[in-house]
Amino acid sequence: MHSIAGRKSGLQWAVHLSVVALVLLWLIPTLGLLVSSVRDRDQIAETGWWLAPLPVEMTFRIRAAPDDARASGDGFVIAGNVLDDPAQARWFPDGAGTVTAFGTRGAAPTEHAPGDTAELRTGGTLSVARDGAFTITAPDALTRPVSIFFEARVPPRVTLDNYATVLTSDGMDRAFLNTLTVAVPATVIPILIAAFAAYALAWMDFRGRGVLIAAVVGLLVVPLQLALVPLLNLHNAVGIGQSFLGIWLAHTGFGMPLAIYLLRNYMVGLPRDIIESARVDGATDFQIFTRIILPLSFPALAAFAIFQFLWVWNDLLVAKVFLPSGSDAQVMTVKIADDLIGSRGGDWGILAAAAFVSIAVPLVVFFTLQRYLVRGLLAGSVK
């Protein structure tokens, strides 16, 4: 009697815990991206985002000028505080900090503990205290600056500089408009074409319909990377080459199998009585499609629109292939990857902020249409 309808399962708590665990697993990467986006770029390189609330041990270098040396006994002495150096003012604005280690060479910047005395390669000694006070002694007058490497504990720094760098970068506004120019038509065109094809495959009888449905399903598993070069050669042959029209058609072709499959499965599950009644009343296929099928298929259309828009907006590969390489045609993903981060990823510290700037519009689209997503995906799966 454990399967009586209406009785709650004793393992319902396990289901709830599993759902919460899955939600947390999905949220953890997003949370890490958000935390990293408001951290200082130098601190991002030192510790992971989960250690963001804790102080960060960072390595610095200052140069003690020989002009600051003063005669003392049989030699010369330079005294000062490494935390007062103007180059490190943003890390130690009030001169407060804790030195955890120091060194005399860049290869080993933390080889000595605070308070120890280190030998300089040019002769003389160096000592750095925990509060940053240092003393350099030399037997002869110094002619070159002395480099002091030290590691200090720095408090966590929250900043919006990463967002300012991304939003104020030259050409970002044009890249945003280019992304809209690509994403909106590349979402609308496949929906318009696929809706007609899906209706035909769902409600019109003609020879070869089953073969076409099988072909659409087969195209779902074909990697788009296989078609990039042949498709680009075709575009060059017909004269559209690398252009907005070319990338619209490319995204249309790549998104068409999923669009037809999703819409056809939804339309075939609509009540047959409605379509047959409309045909008895003399409605044509076009009238049935525009006045009955399309309004009833809005959840499926919205579900595919979400998938297609997110895919096109976040696309990098297709944009690199089918758009000109000049800055006037760059979309946001190309702008971020090529200009902001660099071809070698040298400025990767702003990647988290750039990602949040890039996903702002997709988030608005998703949360606007998300109530239709599950309905559109599950419709047609059961009777």
Results as ranks from 00 to 15, higher is better:
30 T>K: 05
83 L>F: 04
213 I>C: 07
59 T>V: 13
295 P>Y: 09
46 E>W: 00
276 E>L: 11
70 R>E: 15
257 P>V: 00
238 V>G: 07
235 H>D: 11
303 A>D: 03
225 Q>V: 13
153 R>T: 09
196 F>N: 05
65 A>Q: 13
73 G>H: 02
215 A>V: 14
135 T>D: 05
136 I>F: 10
97 G>L: 03
162 N>L: 10
139 P>S: 14
62 I>E: 05
94 D>I: 06
309 F>Q: 06
9 S>D: 10
36 S>G: 06
279 R>Y: 08
307 F>G: 03
228 L>H: 02
248 W>E: 00
134 F>T: 03
183 A>P: 09
4 I>E: 11
335 K>W: 10
365 V>N: 06
372 Y>S: 07
334 V>S: 05
56 V>H: 13
260 I>F: 04
28 I>V: 15
258 L>G: 06
3 S>F: 14
311 W>Q: 07
90 R>Y: 07
49 W>A: 13
223 P>T: 06
296 L>Q: 11
263 L>Y: 01
150 F>P: 02
89 A>H: 12
165 T>Q: 15
355 A>M: 03
78 I>K: 04
243 S>I: 01
300 A>E: 06
224 L>Y: 15
325 S>D: 15
47 T>G: 00
100 T>F: 00
324 P>R: 04
350 I>K: 01
267 M>T: 11
207 R>G: 13
279 R>F: 08
13 W>T: 09
79 A>M: 11
143 T>W: 09
363 L>E: 03
178 N>R: 02
196 F>M: 13
202 A>G: 04
208 G>H: 13
161 D>V: 14
180 L>E: 02
61 R>F: 05
299 P>F: 12
210 G>D: 12
242 Q>E: 10
181 T>I: 10
135 T>G: 04
291 R>P: 02
130 R>H: 01
102 F>L: 03
174 R>H: 07
193 I>K: 05
228 L>K: 03
171 G>E: 09
292 I>S: 07
153 R>H: 01
127 S>V: 10
363 L>G: 13
284 T>C: 01
147 S>A: 15
168 T>R: 14
87 A>P: 01
106 G>F: 10
233 N>Q: 14
337 A>T: 11
19 V>E: 06
67 D>E: 15
329 A>K: 05
1 M>R: 10
237 A>C: 02
128 V>A: 09
108 A>D: 12
192 L>T: 11
262 L>T: 15
367 F>K: 05
209 R>V: 11
266 Y>L: 06
28 I>L: 15
350 I>M: 03
223 P>E: 07
30 T>Y: 14
150 F>R: 04
5 A>H: 12
68 D>W: 12
241 G>A: 14
138 A>D: 10
81 N>C: 07
60 F>R: 00
124 G>H: 07
132 G>S: 02
99 V>E: 04
357 V>C: 14
110 T>V: 13
176 F>V: 11
282 G>M: 08
253 G>K: 08
162 N>D: 12
319 A>N: 13
236 N>C: 08
240 I>D: 01
226 L>C: 05
45 A>T: 14
52 A>S: 14
180 L>T: 04
128 V>N: 08
